[in-house]
Design a protein around this nucleic acid. Structure first.
Lengths: 192, 192
DNA sequence: AGACTAACAGACAGGTCTGTCTACTAGAAG
DNA sequence: CTTCTAGTAGACAGACCTGTCTGTTAGTCT
């Protein structure tokens, strides 16, 4: 079925869009560029994604899966203790900052060029809320007296590290975020 | 000299650009729109700002003055004690979040749609460094053992609050940032 | 009065972007 | 063998965007 290089046409389009949209911002990349780089016909792209906005939303969904996955993986790598996981998830930030071509938070960057109330905006809010809900759950499992507050604090640090990383992929930012997170977790949870 | 509504042509252009660029992002606003909204001739705009990029940089400079001014004002309003000022500056964040049409950090939003290494990028890094240097100075005056670390922590919170505010102008974010800042300041500085 | 300056008004060129449309191709299914 | 499906290739329309250019108008300075 696939007479094309690798994967289905849809996958190649989405992979290419992921790479280009993240590097230059969705508005900075034309549909023609996505087509050329993914080696696909224009009609094929518009068959899978009726409009560019649909492609942008699919891109955000992909980002959501990738970033949530990275957070979960980093947390799991810290062991079974929820308290350790709350700090360990910051390793995902460190990893992201180190990566070549790091350009900050894809959601914030995309939302920045979208008007308030747009689907992109809504999707971004949903993503941030989902992450915070997950962190809140971890904080609750860890026994925090005010899990919502701790989660808010930690996601603030996460967002600050992500956003600040638009500037330079300085891992010092991620390290500072991690150590600060540890301090906040220690302050919020009784030592054992 | 001014036969036009209010202020010089240059001021009106820059004020309009400030408003539109912040709301829709520089790339989302055409030069024609800026001209129409500021009631100015095209040639006049291109006389004061040789290219749109120059206008964008002038916009960022205006943002820099506005935001730095707001931080300084909020800090001063907290009194003469540097320790109180480190927390008080977060009132600038609260004020920004409350404002109608709040759309996050103008620098981060603009940098998001600019390639790495561009003048916009450079200007953004300079702005963030200037703010952090000022916070570091405050931390030093307050007697912090590690002023750079405390400043890094507080600017992380500030950036996180600014960036997160792209989503909703929820003042809860700003309040959380402020209370977290107080906790970090208390932890870094000996109680008196 | 005459020269100069700052601004207005708007046409225009050249490029880019999204989205549509036509025509063709290769493999799979019946 | 025929039909269907997924895809390739590329022309095209219509909108928009930046930057230039011509011509006009209203004040200011000497």
């Amino acid at each position: 079925m696939a007479r094309t290089p690798a994967g289905t046409a849809r996958d190649r389009i989405l992979d290419t869009a992921f790479r280009l949209f993240y590097a230059y911002g969705p508005r900075g990349v034309g549909v023609d560029t996505v087509i050329a780089e993914s080696g696909v016909a224009k009609a094929t792209l518009y068959k899978h994604f009726p409009s560019k906005d649909d492609l942008v939303l699919a891109y955000l969904d992909k980002v959501d899966r990738a970033w949530s996955g990275a957070l979960h993986t980093a947390a799991r790598a810290a062991g079974d203790d929820p308290r350790a996981q709350l700090v360990g998830m910051f390793d995902a930030l460190t990893g992201a900052c180190r990566r070549e071509g790091y350009h900050g938070c894809a959601f914030i960057n995309t939302a920045a060029e979208s008007p308030a109330g747009s689907p992109v905006h809504t999707r971004t809010v949903a993503h941030k809320n989902a992450v915070r809900a997950w962190v809140t759950d971890l904080a609750r499992q860890a026994g925090a007296a005010e899990p919502e507050l701790l989660a808010r604090q930690l996601t603030l640090l996460l967002d600050g590290g992500l956003a600040g990383g638009v500037l330079d992929g300085d891992p010092a930012i991620a390290e500072a975020a991690r150590s600060t997170a540890r301090a906040l977790v220690d302050a919020a949870l009784p030592k054992r």
